[in-house]
């Protein structure tokens, strides 16, 4: 017994280290904190209140970015307005002609960004709307410019938005001009990469990209970004397409939560298939 105590005392650091590593690995294998439902809601509420309390502190960098983005947007919009007016008149005339049904736009809830967290490259923001405004987990979030993220947690008065600049995010996208579909993923910087587009497909710099109807997370047609570079690699069958998102993620102040939830039947089917594939592995 004494020798066992001596052994433990001698190697206490190593034994403790091994035990803690085993605990950590077990916790990692269990999964995400989102499984701790009620606790997470309390945490979101507390963090939201704290962030609102300190939201008066000005962030010069964010203001500068916002200012620059607004000026650029203003310039774009002023040229777009004229073009849009002409297009709108023509569109109305054509709709009447073919008795095209007016597409209903999804309702949106405006929200104020009360806090942002950049923690270990996981980008989140807190908004001042929650379950009392009928916001639920899974709703997409956008600005007037384009897609910014998705609700991942709600309390009664606050919600946490996971921004698109996140390694977990995969956006089912469509190139507006040609209708080519692909999956956009975060490049790790400010831009996104559209993968698996064959070399023969027509893709040009300046093409607009929107969310596609293949997405089981986002509604169709939310503006996403503009193609800024098309790299053709002779050793690959696919093009590498870089997209600059429309929304300026670094200077978000006002956002809109789109009251859209994916079809639960579709999600359930996808989950079932994923489970089956996991079991096969």
């Amino acid at each position: 017994m004494q020798s066992l105590i001596d052994f433990v005392a001698r190697f206490k650091e190593l034994i403790t280290f091994t035990a803690l590593v085993i605990i950590c690995l077990s916790l990692i294998s269990i999964g995400n904190v989102s499984q701790i439902g009620g606790f997470r809601a309390i945490l979101i509420g507390t963090v939201g209140n704290l962030q609102q309390l300190f939201s008066w502190i000005p962030n010069p960098q964010a203001l500068r970015n916002e200012n620059r983005a607004l000026r650029e947007l203003n310039l774009q919009l002023s040229t777009e307005v004229i073009r849009m007016r002409e297009a709108s008149v023509e569109n109305n005339r054509l709709r009447k002609m073919i008795e095209f049904q007016q597409v209903a736009t999804l309702p949106m809830i405006p929200a104020q960004v009360v806090g942002k967290s950049v923690v270990e490259m996981r980008n989140f923001m807190t908004i001042n709307r929650g379950s009392s405004d009928s916001i639920t987990v899974g709703m997409p979030v956008r600005t007037d410019a384009g897609l910014v993220g998705m609700i991942v947690g709600v309390s009664s008065n606050f919600s946490i938005v996971e921004l698109i600049t996140n390694r977990n995010v995969k956006i089912s996208s469509r190139i507006l001009r040609t209708g080519i579909d692909g999956i956009s993923v975060w490049s790790g910087g400010e831009n996104f990469i559209l993968n698996n587009i064959p070399e023969s497909f027509d893709v040009q710099e300046g093409d607009y990209v929107v969310t596609s109807d293949f997405s089981n997370k986002y509604p169709t047609g939310i503006p996403f970004g503009e193609i800024i570079e098309v790299v053709e690699d002779p050793s690959s069958l696919f093009k590498k397409i870089y997209i600059e998102p429309f929304a300026n993620i670094s200077s978000l102040e006002q956002v809109f939560v789109v009251k859209f939830l994916p079809d639960p039947e579709r999600l359930k089917l996808i989950e079932q298939i994923e489970e089956q594939l996991k079991l096969r592995k």
């Binding site: 650091e13 403790t16 280290f17 803690l20 590593v21 605990i23 950590c24 690995l25 077990s26 916790l27 990692i28 269990i30 999964g31 995400n32 904190v33 989102s34 997470r40 945490l43 963090v47 967290s117 923690v119 270990e120 996981r122 989140f124 991942v152 947690g153 946490i160």
Partner: peptide, 25 residues
Amino acid sequence: GLFAGFLGGMIYDIVTMDVIGTNAL
């Protein structure tokens, strides 16, 4: 230090809503 690292990491994992155990490890 081992306990400080483990508990500090756990606090981080919880408040940042990361996968619990990654920062702790």
